[in-house]
Amino acid sequence: MITKFEQSTAFASGRPITSGQSITTEQIAKSAYSSTPPQPSALTPVVEVKDLTRNYGKRRGVESLSFELTAGEIVGLLGPNGCGKTTLIKLIMGLLQPDRGSVVIRGQKPQVSYNLISYLPENTYLNPALTMQEAVRIFVDFYRDFDQAKAWRMLAEFGLEPNQTLKTMSKGMQEKANLALVMSRDVPLYILDEPMGGIDPAARETILNGILTNYNPGSTLLLSTHLISDVEMLFDRVIFLDNGRIRLDRSVEELRAREGKSIDGLFREIYAPERGEYYA
């Protein structure tokens, strides 16, 4: 059977995957990060979401969401625009307050867990006047788990200069810059909110490669997107959100075996007929 790590590495290098290949988890882990990875128990939930509800006035944000994320999982948070993906992520991050329910990250409230989470928000969150050098400095200052060498390596791979300011960069370049910083941390949980939203396909591939080659396999990755076809080979599990509720929460393996379709195909089947929309 092809492991997730084999899939990831093969995708990143652009070569096809066959079940006979003998890439070990250790080899991938060795190439993926330079610092010591965390050693979480696979049974302990990294994130526990219970009965989470948040409305915006009369408009529903998310309603009665309950699920757990365990160590080592790559979870796709999928759904059309406005279905509640960003609301859910902000609630997990403690950036929005729930009307009801709770979020626990490794037994702690989100607000005291920021040393455990590397978060990439939907929009760039760095001061546009900063140079890359200054942005890296901020991460060095605040995050003990930040691997500066890895960040510079990624930034060089993305073609970004140390003295370049964020305001002189295109949206795609800013996205790459943010991703390099976020993926250079060594934490149990990565949360990426639409890392490829509004970016051209060539840049999407670079960003995806950046995630795959720098992702710590022992960590949990929650990735929200509506561009499913680009990333579906990454996921261990998918959570489909629809109008603030969980429509489906299954392992990808189980879904493929039962439905015999790609996640993208399933997504279109679930959402498109109702709305007459096409999500590419």
Binding site: L95, Y125, L126, I138, F142
Partner: peptide, 14 residues
């Protein structure tokens, strides 16, 4: 603003 997403997720107390 957008910068709040960084400020409020730094590992420091309010």
């Amino acid at each position: 603003t957008n910068q709040g997403y960084l400020t409020h997720t730094l590992p420091v107390t309010p």
